[in-house]
Structures are given as structure tokens and as C-alpha cells.
């Protein structure tokens, strides 16, 4: 209890020191839930996951309600996102990847909306937590590996043996290939999580500079904040894109083995 009070005091800057930039990432339980001994509480993170899912669903369903032959503004946007991911899957996975198009689309939209919602002040950024991005990345990694073995059987192991390499180097290269394959979920999840966390921490730090320097000196960090917010919006889109396209590339490896 005393800790909580201290944290709150820090957050509002009344404790004398700088507000804690990591405070924004704290998980707060809104509804305590316990299912068979597992903590399933509805937290601020859950709230924004639900908001993202509802926003995506209503955007795509309500914009297409007219099913107009000549699309309006919102319908154009919905079709644009559809075509964007469809062409990404077509170009990077090929015709065999059409089965996985709904998953890639959901993945891209979910990550994009979670990132973008995080740019709104007083919201929580779901993707700034390593456990969320790692869960997504691990699921992708496991699913891709299962697809690969289901399609090629044990033949998929050839994927780790590069062709046209001297026999002397082969053991080393196989180990390198194996490590690079196994670290995929880590690189995929850390990339997104680190980008989101670093960006939001920077915004918080510079925001506290603006307040700390006051009316006289606060303008310089404020100008930086404006530019950095623009950059963060770009990063929010870019990281969702990178997440989706890397998933496509992993799928391509699983389906075609290069």
C-alpha cells in the first residue's frame, strides 16, 4: 500500500524527482478473476486488447455494410487494407499461402491497432510487453514449424543444410542455420516489444522535460516531442508491417524451403 502511494506520487511528479517513465507499462487489475487457480484477471492490457479487437471488427464489418460497387471512403480503406495484406501474402508466400491469409491479416491488424492505440495519451500499449509479443512470435514459430514438417516430413531437415557448401564447413553452417532458425521467435518478439517500449519511454522522458523546464525552457523538448510523435506513429505502422512480412517469409520457408 505504501509502495503504491509512493508510485502514484512519483507518477504525478509531486515526489520531487522525475516521474517514473516505466510507470506507464504497469499492469493494473481491473476485475480480479481466478479460473481454476490461474490468474485470469481483466487488466488494463486486456481492456486495450478488447478495444483493438472491437475497433478492427467494427471497422471492417460496418465499412463493408453497403457492399457498394463503387466504394465510399471507409469501404475504400477496408478494401485497401485487404488488398495490402493479400498482395503481401501473394508476393511473399505464393499461391499456397492463401490459406493463411486470414491469420496474417488478423495478426497485422491486431498489432497495428495495438501499436496505434498506444499512441493515444492515457492508453496502454499492449505490444510493449514482451510476454504478449513473445506469445505471438512463439505461436507463429510453432505453427510454421508444424506446417513445414506436415508438408515435407523429415525432408524439412534439409532446410538446415545449405547447398553447394564445402563438406568441411557444413557442420558449422548447419549449427548456424539451426540457431538462426530457433532464435526467430526471440528476434521477432523482441523487435516489436523493444521498439514500442523504447518509443513510449522516450516520449515520457521528454514529456517530463517539457514540464520540468517550464514555460521558458520547455519549448525545445516540446518541438522534439512533436517530431518524435510523428516518428513513433511511423514506427507503430512499420513494426506491424515488419511483424506481418516476417511471418510471411517464415511461412514461405516452411512451404517452399527456399
Amino acid at each position: 500500500m505504501a509502495n503504491e502511494v509512493a508510485a502514484d506520487a512519483n507518477e504525478h511528479g509531486s515526489g520531487g524527482g522525475m516521474p517514473d517513465p516505466m510507470h506507464q507499462f504497469e499492469i493494473k487489475r481491473q476485475v480480479e478473476l481466478d479460473v481454476f487457480g490461474i490468474d485470469a484477471s481483466f487488466t488494463n492490457s486486456s481492456l486495450f486488447m478488447v478495444i483493438a479487437a472491437i475497433l478492427i471488427s467494427s471497422f471492417l464489418i460496418f465499412s463493408m455494410r453497403g457492399r457498394a460497387l463503387v466504394p465510399g471512403r471507409m469501404q475504400s480503406l477496408a478494401e485497401l487494407s485487404y488488398e495490402f495484406i493479400a498482395s503481401m501474402v501473394r508476393d511473399n508466400v505464393g499461391a499456397a499461402g492463401q490459406r493463411y491469409f486470414p491469420f496474417i491479416f488478423t495478426l497485422f491488424m491486431f498489432v497495428l491497432f495495438c501499436n496505434m492505440l498506444g499512441m493515444v495519451p492515457y492508453t496502454f500499449t499492449v505490444t510493449s510487453h514482451i510476454i504478449v509479443t513473445f506469445a505471438l512470435a512463439s505461436f507463429i514459430f510453432l505453427a510454421v514449424t508444424v506446417i513445414a514438417f506436415a508438408r515435407h516430413g523429415a525432408g524439412f531437415l534439409q532446410y538446415f543444410v545449405p547447398k553447394g557448401v564445402p563438406a568441411l564447413l557444413l557442420p558449422l553452417l548447419v549449427v548456424i542455420e539451426l540457431i538462426s532458425y530457433l532464435t526467430r521467435p526471440i528476434s521477432l518478439s523482441v523487435r516489436l516489444f523493444a521498439n514500442m517500449m523504447a518509443g513510449h519511454t522516450m516520449l515520457k522522458v521528454f514529456g517530463s522535460f517539457v514540464v520540468g523546464l517550464g514555460v521558458l525552457g520547455g519549448w525545445a523538448p516540446l518541438a522534439f516531442m512533436v517530431a518524435f510523435t510523428g516518428l513513433e506513429i511511423l514506427v507503430a505502422f512499420l513494426q506491424a508491417y515488419v511483424f506481418a512480412i516476417l511471418t510471411c517469409i517464415y511461412l514461405h520457408d516452411a512451404l517452399h524451403m527456399h
Binding site: I27, V35, D39, A40, F42, M49, V126, I131, A135, L136
Partner: peptide
């Protein structure tokens, strides 16, 4: 971790 994973 658990509540986040479950709600995800």
C-alpha cells in the same frame, strides 16, 4: 504473465 496470455 498469465492474465495477459489468457486475454491475448
Amino acid at each position: 504473465f498469465a492474465p495477459q496470455l489468457i486475454w491475448l
